[in-house]
């Protein structure tokens, strides 16, 4: 339970390496066959926190199942922590902790009791261990549920407790594969704290999610899957930079009037009205932007909107951008 600092993640050795990987599973739609995963290339280093996102829940779930050695892959190469995959699938690899379901936890205990039960083989004295665990639960934002029976908790909290248990294990790679769950702010905070604990202890966390806010909050890196292939893999900031094409938003009571004027003056940008807000975006992800010219136009035309706000890059916008790019 002691934290250990590590060197910068990029210098760390490889935790997951996938090369030209394709799945055994195949889609059959209107007589056409397509591998669910095709040509997957991914490199994850130790100490990083990765969020795998995608258009299809099935694809991201399957990718992590293959990564955890639970399902076989058809072709390519997959190496975990610089150790090759075992031929016998589903066997527990000592260095991987896989979380694939909320049912892995015993329901008839409370959270603290379960953590005490799970860490019973720890060498720390019982009273001291319980105090440490309770303190940790409070520190990471789970104090309110520490004495709650697990069967009364929603699935999201249950998997968070499992994730916390995984942190106490000796496994270096934690694969958290429950993408069907959606987390609220009360749940994202402890997840963020646990992810930080995992990362600080030199372990690697890879999780699947379609929740952009969660990825934004807790990940250092992300990968995005479309039609069975990874179309982006890199840091969160790179992802946002590349695909979040919103330049600024203008709030006003008459956004359509402003849009008409702006379209005439600066036709090279894209305009969209949403909830009394005019959103101005880049025409394409690689085009150049001159924010000053937009401000000048607003000023010169005397539009005087209620509020103009520069866009802070977000994963949510980037996901929308990537979907637009791939026409989905």
């Amino acid at each position: 339970m002691e934290n250990t600092s590590t060197v910068a993640p990029e210098q760390n050795p490889m935790a997951v390496y996938m090369n030209q990987l394709s799945s055994c599973e195949i889609y059959l739609r209107e007589g056409q066959y397509r591998r669910i995963l095709e040509n997957i290339n991914l490199s994850i280093h130790k100490g990083e926190v990765w969020g795998l996102n995608g258009k299809s829940l099935l694809e991201i779930k399957l990718l992590l199942e293959i990564m955890a050695n639970i399902k076989p892959y058809y072709d390519g190469r997959c190496v975990l922590l610089e150790i090759g995959m075992m031929r016998r699938k589903r066997i527990i690899l000592p260095h991987v902790f896989y979380i694939g379901t909320v049912n892995m936890i015993y329901n008839n205990m409370n959270v603290l009791e379960y953590l005490m039960f799970a860490t019973a083989n720890s060498k720390i004295e019982v009273v001291k261990r319980q105090k440490q665990l309770l303190k940790l639960l409070i520190d990471i934002g789970l104090g309110n549920i520490s004495l709650t029976p697990i069967h009364t908790l929603p699935s999201e909290f249950r998997v968070i407790v499992i994730l916390l248990t995984a942190y106490f294990s000796s496994s270096e790679l934690i694969i958290f594969n429950v993408p069907e769950l959606k987390y609220n702010n009360q749940q994202i905070t402890p997840m963020k704290n646990i992810a930080r604990l995992i990362s600080d202890s030199g372990k690697t966390l890879v999780f699947s999610s379609i929740d952009s806010a969660l990825i934004q909050e807790i990940c250092t890196h992300t990968a995005y899957l479309i039609n069975g292939s990874i179309v982006f893999s890199g840091t969160i900031s790179e992802f946002c930079e590349e695909y979040d094409d919103i330049i600024l938003t203008i709030s006003d009571q008459q956004p359509y009037l402003i849009m008409e004027s702006m379209q005439k003056a600066l036709p090279q940008y894209k305009y969209k009205v949403s909830d009394d807000r005019l959103i101005i975006s880049k025409p394409s992800t690689d085009s150049r932007v001159n924010v000053e010219s937009i401000y000048n136009v607003i000023f010169k035309m005397g539009l005087n909107p209620y509020r103009v706000r520069m866009n802070t890059k977000t994963v949510k916008n980037a996901v929308e951008g990537i979907l637009r790019k791939y026409d989905l």
């Binding site: 527990i92 902790f97 799970a118 294990s169």
Partner: peptide
Amino acid sequence: RNCWYLLCKMG
């Protein structure tokens, strides 16, 4: 249900 998987990982 993989309850034992988790416990095995915990020693």
